[in-house]
Amino acid sequence: MSAERRNEPGNLKWFLTGMRGVLSLPALILMTSYVGFAAFALQAGLTRAESVIMTLGVWALPSQMILVGSMIGGANIVASFLAVTLSAIRMMPMVASIVPEMRTQKTPVWLLLFLSHFIAITSWVFASTHLRDVPRQHRVAFFAGFGLTLTCGNAAIVGISYGIVSQFPPVVAGALFMLTPVYFISSIWASSRQFVVKLAFIIGIAAGPLLALVAPQFDVLIAGLGGGTVAYLIDRYRRQRRRAVEEAA
């Protein structure tokens, strides 16, 4: 990135603009969630350093909860790996959908591999919402500024709040917990420009809880792959039919 930054004087500015993104509502919501994680890690018997390293190294709250949970349960390393990796498969399409929007022809693969570590749900939503407003050659710097700051900031929050906050009052904790899903709902809907994304949104929201009842181990995976594919096929059929009508007219 240093080489690119030398060539592109505007990159530092965009990096800083990305950094400022951590003062946004979603980032603040995530921070409160990480205060909750610190409390959970303490109860589970992790040290402060382990909690911080896990936050930096895994950087996906659901996966971290699962890893800590499997540690409490005394699962062996293979079982822990499987449980965590199953929860992380969703990262692949999330990263794959951001990369084409973020890179330029010249962006080196190693840089994308490095930056992919900072993609989790919050930064995926942030990237899907804001990347399109950033000039293409500065998108990597913009995302790096946001992603690095968000991850390091939350690791710091885990380190600081470890042992301080053990519990929020119930109504506050409930409201905090609800913030994350309702934020995702409104921001993803507001940022979806294509019909196919709106369709996938609706199908995913319905399929997630329904499949959780039927196939609790693979619900998210089936809802994503199956629901996404159905949304895509419906959208493609719709586009083809419209094209056919236009050609006929």
């Binding site: 659901p62 969703r90 399409p93 999330m94 794959a96 959908s97 084409p100 749900i121 995926w124 939503v125 917990f177 609800m178 994350t180 899903p181 995702f184 709902i185 993803i188 979806s192 294509q194 196919v196 994304v197 369709l199 996938a200 949104f201 609706i202 199908i203 995913g204 929201i205 319905a206 399929a207 997630g208 809880p209 499949l211 959780a212 619900d219 998210v220 995976l221 809802a223 994503g224 792959l225 199956g226 629901g227 996404g228 594919t229 949304a231 895509y232 959208d235 493609r236």
Partner: peptide, 21 residues
């Protein structure tokens, strides 16, 4: 990419809905 976007969106929304339900 249209398909990948659809899959990613459906995945995230499935996780989101489960957080509520």
């Amino acid at each position: 990419l249209n398909w990948v976007r659809a899959v990613a969106t459906a995945l995230v929304m499935a996780v989101t809905a489960k957080l509520i339900v």
